[in-house]
Amino acid sequence: MLDDRARMEAAKKEKVEQILAEFQLQEEDLKKVMRRMQKEMDRGLRLETHEEASVKMLPTYVRSTPEGSEVGDFLSLDLGGTNFRVMLVKVGEGEEGQWSVKTKHQMYSIPEDAMTGTAEMLFDYISECISDFLDKHQMKHKKLPLGFTFSFPVRHEDIDKGILLNWTKGFKASGAEGNNVVGLLRDAIKRRGDFEMDVVAMVNDTVATMISCYYEDHQCEVGMIVGTGCNACYMEEMQNVELVEGDEGRMCVNTEWGAFGDSGELDEFLLEYDRLVDESSANPGQQLYEKLIGGKYMGELVRLVLLRLVDENLLFHGEASEQLRTRGAFETRFVSQVESDTGDRKQIYNILSTLGLRPSTTDCDIVRRACESVSTRAAHMCSAGLAGVINRMRESRSEDVMRITVGVDGSVYKLHPSFKERFHASVRRLTPSCEITFIESEEGSGRGAALVSAVACKKACMLGQ
């Protein structure tokens, strides 16, 4: 009897593995994704193909990295998701002549009506938060230079001027797309009239992360975010950046690689679950690469896999709870928690219980395998993109072996128990001629924006502006 049951459990697990095998990517698959990513990057950089390229390769006008001589107080704003952060950054000489960066910050959550109302409502709310922060720190009387981390696709015309191309991540505030974001912020500050600010720089969160990590390690020339969304930036040779005049030196390019796949480059790798996630998203047909990796989508992918296993009578005796059938019910943090389970399955059992399920031991094991399959594919897909960037940098610099540091931020990278190990191992397999160091950014977005502002202020002083 026991043997029969054991055989049935083994057969069930084997069927589960057959279904989950769809998520496995072979090294040849990853090399294919990497080569296609490089081709799209090239198209994004070139003037004649930029418009139709899915990977936009947006110039950021960040050319210099901090040298350690900029000092002063800077205000930093960070808008990239449902939370908005205001930070005071003091850049100065530390002990023994070292450079020191001290920060104080406060988080504000953005109400739904500000995210989806008008641009005026959104930026009025942001300036209200700045006003509140300055009151708390008794700094209303000071006109501070301000660095703005704005983590949406922007076409820069200068370091302090950028046109919002399109909202992502659930934002829909009308009247912002096609307009200068810094102008919208300046107008809102003017409307309030109770404080003055000098907006000197606007950067993407990947750029802010790279600059913040450069402060720790001067070989950091790539910034990457794996959180709600997924994106990367890197220092490109100016001669390859056709959208900006000049051939000397390097400029940081914001790849906006989340949109890779929007022209069909990933079609052969998309599964039924991916198509369902895409169809029910706020932007169907867009940001397809990001939807395979980002935390906004990972939990939902797992939920759809679990429903398939229920329908195949391989999980929960073929019956799903009402909660499990509800879109968004299986949160991405559950994926991390399930994979963090120590082996007694308590954590998995508790999560499934909150979803109205009474799982068996085998159910718990199957749910864990589903989570591992989805998150491992995410790590491997992400590795193909980064390997594409790094191999490109090595080739354009004609280096036999390139040493490089990548600064990384984002909740999936930082909080998932195995993502970074799987990701690092896969990147290294795909970049055999590179020695890569990964560092995690601390308060990256805010500190990085302030350091970019410090560079901009120093330049302005040198130019006598």
Rank of each mutant, 00 (worst) to 15 (best):
F423L: 13
R403T: 08
P417D: 13
Y108W: 09
A425V: 07
A329Y: 07
S353M: 12
G44A: 06
E440F: 12
I189L: 09
D278S: 12
Y234I: 04
T342D: 02
H137Q: 10
L451I: 11
L355M: 03
H105P: 06
R250C: 11
G183A: 06
G388L: 10
T361G: 07
L386Y: 02
Y234T: 06
F150V: 12
G261S: 03
K172I: 05
K140I: 03
L415A: 03
A188I: 02
E290F: 13
T354W: 09
F148R: 04
S353H: 01
L266S: 07
A450R: 14
Q239I: 04
G444S: 09
S375I: 06
K32L: 05
Q239V: 10
G410E: 12
T168F: 12
E322V: 09
L30S: 15
A11M: 15
S151A: 10
V101S: 02
S280A: 13
E272H: 05
V181P: 06
L314H: 14
E95Q: 12
V154W: 11
A387V: 01
M235S: 08
V199R: 11
R155M: 11
L185G: 00
E9C: 14
N254E: 04
S281R: 07
M8F: 12
V199L: 04
A259L: 10
T116L: 09
G246S: 04
K458P: 12
N180R: 10
K56D: 03
A379D: 02
T116W: 09
C220F: 01
E96S: 11
G170L: 15
I159F: 12
G94Q: 13
G464V: 11
L304R: 06
N166L: 12
F195D: 01
D73L: 01
I163Q: 15
D42W: 13
M238I: 12
L134V: 07
S353Y: 02
T332V: 11
W99G: 06
Q347H: 05
K420W: 12
M202R: 05
A173T: 07
G81H: 15
L243S: 15
I163E: 13
G162L: 13
E93G: 07
T149I: 05
L2I: 09
F152D: 13
N231W: 04
S174D: 09
R303N: 01
L270K: 03
A6F: 15
M87T: 07
V367N: 00
